[in-house]
Design a protein around this nucleic acid. Sequence first.
DNA 1: ACGTTGACCTATA
DNA 2: GTATAGGCCAACG
Length: 111
Amino acid sequence: MKYQGDFFEDVLEVVKLIPRGRVTSYGAIAKYLGVARSSRMVGWALNKSLEKDLNIPAHRVVNRLGLLSGKMHFSSPTKMEEELRSEGIRVENNSVQNFNEVFWDPFSELP
DNA sequence: ACGTTGACCTATA
DNA sequence: GTATAGGCCAACG
């Protein structure tokens, strides 16, 4: 079986760099990796990362509207929301409040 | 090899 | 707000 090469690793690497109390979007990650049109693959990689028992803060990744679109893939549907709240992020009705302020842009935060 | 799937995005109605 | 459509592209069966 082929080991997960570039894509999988790169995605997880960026996600792991997301600071506590900040969030980012699938599209932003994809764009940063130079695969702007493969934003769906970012979510796929995260989903796989959960199965593989990797230490990935997947709860810090939401869609471009700040919606917790991936909450259903966690151990519990409420896990993602609680994790975000524990980091000081306001989450209400499935969406990140103050999204503009907590948004973490790889382009401006990484070299 | 081929068809389907998907934690997306944008557009339209 | 929901629905539908098109595009995108790696992985899976």
